[in-house]
Each structure stands twice: as C-alpha cells, then as structure tokens.
Design a protein around this nucleic acid. Structure first.
Lengths: 150, 150
DNA sequence: GATAATTCCTAGTAATACGATATGGAATAG
DNA sequence: CTATTCCATATCGTATTACTAGGAATTATC
C-alpha cells in the first residue's frame, strides 16, 4: 500500500501538465482527456491548488488554469501539504500522549521529511531528476553528494 | 490526521514495556493491563513481531514475551515496516506508471525516510532522546549536529 | 443581449481501509 | 491440569478517501 494519497499523485500530474503549457491556460476538459480522469474529480483537486495560489484560473471561453509561479519555485512540500495534509506522525496537540512514546522522535522525523521535500521542486519532479539540494539544510537531514549530479 | 497507524504506535508501546522488564517474560495479560488494550488485540500485534524474531515467546505458565535483542539493536525502521508496511510512495512494480511522475524522486524520498529510521533505535525511542546518528549516512539524509546532544 | 464555455461551490455517495472485538480452539510447558 | 502462547477467521463500526452530481457565477464571442 502506498503512503501517498491518489489526490497528491494526480495533483502532481495536473501541475506537470500546466507546467508544460506555460503559455496558455489549460481547461479542465483538456486535463481530463490527458490524464484519463473525470472533469469533476479534477475540478475538486484544483480547488485547493487555486486557494493556495499555486495555480491561477481564468473563467469563460478559452479559460482554464495555469501555474502562478515557475515550476522551480514550487516546492514538493507545498503540494504535498495541500493535497494530503501536513506531515504529522502524531497529532495529539500536547505531544505528551501515550501514543507519542517519544515526542522528540516524531518531531525530528517530521522535520526530516519536511526539510527534504521543501527542497524538491516541481521542476525536479518534472525532469525526473533527483532534486538539487544544498550540502546541508539547517539542523535537518540532507541529501549528500551521491554521484547523481547533485 | 496522523500518518502513522495506531498499530505501529501500540507496537512501540509493547516493545517499550518488554524492554523495561528485560529479565522476565511479560504475558499478554500484563501488557493488556498496562496499555489499556484488549488481550486479543495485543496478541494480533505481537504476531508479526514474533515472526520477524523481534520478540521471543515462552509458552505455558509464567510464559510471555521478551525482546530477542537489546533495544539499542532494534531499528525503528524494522518496527515500522512490520506494523504498517513498507515505506512506499508509489507501489507500482515497474516504477514507470503514470502516477510515478518521477520514479527517481520517490525512490530518493523513500530512501531518505528509510535511512533516517534505520538509525533510530528502540533505545532512542524509549529514552525520549533524539536519536544518535552519524554525521553522514551513506548517500542519504542524516541528522546533523543540532545542539540537542547528538 | 444571447449563447456557450468555462470555472466555482456545495453536497452527496460509494468503496475501502483500518481499528478493534470476538470466537474457538490447538499446542506447549510448568 | 492449568496457564499461557499460538493461530485463523470473521465481523462490525467508523473514518477516510475517491469519485459523482447539480447547478450558480463569470466571461468571451457572436
């Protein structure tokens, strides 16, 4: 079973299509044809993307959606949080519940994921390249030199 | 919503209890009392732990479960994979499906999580301390010095 | 204006996963 | 003989998720 929601995966596909046709807006109908999903479903997924101003919409004939920013300025973390919620390993507010066992542990691991994904951009996703990451990222995990061109 | 299953969290609680009473085996009944869960439920959770030889069982009177290894030699990753399945962001076998968008991306992120959790031990979890991690871990993410005693 | 293309919004339904419980008994060992 | 693990299955409730549906609002074009 995948740990990622379908909505995130399709959301990424949507954004990829929008990124490829920078110039003109893409209608939901076109997206539906290209991605093999229903228009209504894609509409729903576009809603949060628009509210977060990741995409901009144009109504009326020849309307559609386009990216609000260049793909290299859209972090995977943003998309992930929009489409499948925050990266939380335990969501008790106090971080002191029995389930927490070790709050510091979960927080560290959450930060690990977040920092990593904050440095991956839509451009990286599209080009199928491993992401460009700095050698070190704050106090959190980083990709290090790995012979893959980073 | 938490991204971790309850079974993992309770699994960790079980292992913590076992770790604290190293010397003698702990029966399911005792676990049930201590953790406030039904015996049958805990039995179910203990099954995969035993099959993976993380815990050893003794039958008959005064029987019960104990850890097969010291807590410092049980990686969080093992527990996680046993209790809530592998860390997979896309589970198509080919890694070439439409949902993949960027197989290299998911693989890198999966490796990030896995490597991080592979270096966290049950001992870390129990002591509520941030994990001890080497300054660098292969080609994957690491925790770096962060003033928390690592 | 009228019309048609499109986004926008709100609900609702259907399928699935998951947590949790329940039952019943076989095997094992003090 | 009794306490316990072991194992299988199945069931139920609920939360989440995927997906559908209908129609209001907006805008370009004729």
């Amino acid at each position: 079973m995948s740990n990622l929601k379908t909505s995130l995966k399709i959301g990424l596909q949507i954004l990829s299509v929008l990124a490829r046709s920078e110039s003109r807006p893409v209608s939901v109908r076109e997206l539906a044809l290209e991605l093999g999903q229903s228009e209504k479903y894609l509409e729903q997924l576009l809603l949060p993307l628009r509210h977060a101003r990741l995409v901009t919409s144009l109504r009326g004939p020849h309307g559609g959606y386009h990216l609000s920013r260049p793909p290299s300025h859209i972090a995977l973390l943003e998309i992930l949080e929009l489409m499948q919620g925050p990266v939380t390993f335990c969501d008790c507010p106090s971080r002191q519940c029995a389930e927490c066992v070790s709050p510091a542990m979960w927080q560290t691991l959450e930060a690990c994921m977040e920092t990593s994904m904050a440095h991956v951009t839509l451009a990286d996703v599209m080009t199928m390249r491993p992401p460009k990451l700095p050698a070190r990222v704050g106090l959190s995990p980083v990709w290090v030199e790995n012979g893959l061109g980073i």
